[in-house]
């Protein structure tokens, strides 16, 4: 079963008067349970592709399917609903809500999903333990290190067990040790829960963990490298 299918995706941006090609006829298929890295230099189109797959941005042309459902034709509300229930996002800058505690950040998405309070608490406690933040649930982001914040962001992304996690440069602000711990967490989730990971990165440390690395340049897929990961 395909988790993600893209056909002939095109996207052009305008930066002032300059036209920038974000995606140039991208064709892509990612299987369920995949652990895929999108590798490209800055401006190569990896974030644009990630945004298109996540329904955050609409392509100028082309088609996108998630788990067999076409999403490029969905409206704003339907896309939001899809992101809420089926996709987890992890960002480079953690992007936690600063006035909420770690636990509240994790529970907020569940609350929007309509998960009852006692169930939310149970799940957030479990996920905090799973990401190694047991006992830190009452801290606000400002009271945590970068690595801890990223773990909260990961916990938020996966707490509802989405089929697909999209991560944009998740290790960019982390030291080597923390980045390694994070990637091991991703691998564990991928292997134990069957979660599909698509990670946009140019960090070689991250790519070491990938089963597949898709290289992009100027919005085009230039290489699709499948790897055997020990």
């Amino acid at each position: 079963m395909k988790s993600v299918t893209c056909k002939q995706l095109c996207k052009t941006y305008h930066q002032g008067e300059v036209e920038v090609i974000g995606l140039d006829h991208v064709d892509l298929e990612i299987n369920e349970g995949g652990f895929v890295c999108l590798s490209a230099p800055s401006g190569g189109g990896k974030t644009t592709l990630l945004n298109a797959i996540g329904g955050l941005d609409t392509p100028d042309s082309g088609k996108i399917w998630l788990a067999g459902e076409r999403i490029d034709t969905l409206g704003k509300g339907e896309l939001a609903n899809m992101r809420l229930h089926r996709i987890g996002f992890v960002f480079q800058a953690y992007n936690l809500i600063p006035v909420l505690t770690a636990r509240e950040n994790i529970e907020f998405v569940m609350e929007v999903q309509g998960v009852p309070a006692d169930e939310r608490e149970k799940r957030s406690t479990a996920i905090l333990r799973e990401v190694g933040l047991e006992g830190l649930g009452d801290r606000r982001p400002a009271q945590m290190s970068g690595g801890q914040q990223q773990r909260v962001a990961v916990a938020r992304a996966i707490v509802s067990k989405p089929a697909l996690v999209l991560a944009d440069e998740p290790t960019a602000n982390l030291d080597s040790h923390t980045a390694e711990q994070l990637m091991e967490l991703f691998v564990e989730l991928n292997e134990h829960h069957g979660t599909t990971f698509v990670i946009a990165t140019h960090d070689q440390r991250v790519m070491r963990y990938a089963k597949r690395v898709i290289h992009m340049l100027d919005g085009k897929v230039v290489d699709d490298e499948r790897r055997d990961v020990a």
Binding site: K76, L84, F91, I97, P98
Partner: peptide, 12 residues
């Protein structure tokens, strides 16, 4: 922050 929240699936 609103953009991030929207990316998580929160509707406008």
């Amino acid at each position: 922050e609103f953009g991030i929240t929207m990316s998580l699936g929160v509707t406008p």
